[in-house]
């Protein structure tokens, strides 16, 4: 568990907005979000599809392509500003101090290139080392992520690996340069449940050993509960609520967080009707003028529909955006 205050954050995102300028108008995929990640800390970035959590990840990596663009805000990695860097300057960070693991391991490895090609090029992209040294480093990280006989497996093609093994290879590639931060974009969603827990445990262990901070993007609250130190809940491009994982999951402030937790089937509710949030996620191109969640919110009033809530701080250190927060009285006590 990271401690706040004394140490400097690995990643500081401030008021970040990433918009997509499409023919049908501006889509505000990410709209003014701020968060920090401390060294060795695991931040869970939770939200439904289209909430902007993946776009947040790609924005940090500098991998937003037209028609998308980071329109404002700042992303600082160990104090260095990343927003506004050109591709060449950004490449020094990508894969070295800043790595990413993608959702679908079947798609992230190039099908026509051998594993060694894909790993060695990652080593040599940032270090002028011999092929031999690059290969040795590749085998080393493969062993770290639990791939048996890594030397032989290096000569294999991606299709000769199972989905779980491919994700391990992708994680190994992310770990090659011992990055300060790894962004994991739902890396276990496409895997079997048994493999999921293995990969989760593996990543948790590797990050703890190397002091790598982790931004874990997911829609799965159970994963967040078991893995993350802190959690940020995203809705329609904004962070609805963020704080320590126990605080947020046990005593949600934002009605959306509450609804999200209620939607998870629990063991005790067998046979009972599953709670759900009415309606569906709004189109990011046509957001209501007020709080984006207001049309679906059971607690919404006239103020919610009129103007969007700004960021407020709860006494326990949480940040939230809500006119009608839940449990705030209790938290204050």
């Amino acid at each position: 568990m990271a401690t706040s205050g004394s140490t400097r954050p690995v990643l500081a995102v401030e008021n970040l907005s990433t918009h997509f300028f499409t023919r049908d108008g501006v889509v505000k995929a990410v709209d003014g979000i701020s968060f920090e990640v401390m060294p060795g800390e695991v931040l869970g970035l939770v939200g439904e599809s289209g909430s902007g959590k993946s776009i947040t990840g790609f924005s940090i990596m500098g991998l937003i392509d037209p028609p998308g663009r980071i329109v404002s805000g700042s992303i600082r990695l160990n104090g260095e500003e990343l927003v506004g860097l050109d591709d060449r300057a950004m490449r020094r960070f990508r894969g070295r101090s800043l790595a990413m693991v993608f959702q679908d391991p079947m798609m992230t490895l190039n099908p026509v290139l051998r594993i060694d090609t894909q790993m060695m090029e990652a080593v040599q992209a940032h270090e002028a080392v011999s092929d031999k040294a690059a290969r040795a480093r590749s085998a080393e990280v493969l062993a770290m992520v639990g791939i048996p006989s890594p030397e032989e497996r290096l000569s294999a093609y991606p299709h000769q690996f199972s989905g779980g093994m491919r994700q391990r290879v992708a994680i190994a590639i992310a770990l090659i340069h011992r990055p300060a931060l790894i962004i994991a974009d739902e890396p276990t969603t496409a895997l079997d449940v048994t493999i999921q827990s293995q990969i989760l445990a593996e990543m948790q262990r590797l990050c703890a050993e190397s002091g790598t901070a982790l931004v874990w993007i997911t829609h799965d609250l159970a994963v967040v509960a078991g893995l993350a130190d802190r959690v940020a809940v995203m809705y329609a491009g904004r962070i609805a609520e963020q704080g320590k994982v126990d605080d947020v999951l046990d005593r949600p402030i934002h009605p959306y967080t509450h609804g999200l937790i209620g939607s998870v089937p629990g063991a005790r509710m067998h046979g009972a009707r599953l709670a759900q949030i009415p309606g569906s996620t709004p189109s990011l191109g046509r957001l209501p003028p007020g709080c984006a969640f207001a049309p679906r919110c059971p607690r919404a009033d006239a103020a919610c529909a009129e103007h969007a809530p700004s960021i407020a701080a709860a006494p326990d250190g949480r940040a939230y955006r809500c006119h009608r927060p839940m449990l705030i009285e209790e938290v204050a006590r």
């Binding site: 490449r91 894969g95 990652a122 940032h126 590639i173």
Partner: peptide, 12 residues
């Protein structure tokens, strides 16, 4: 995705 992943590795 493999192209995006290649970019995420910092390749030219």
């Amino acid at each position: 995705d493999y192209v995006k992943f290649a970019r995420a590795k910092g390749l030219s």
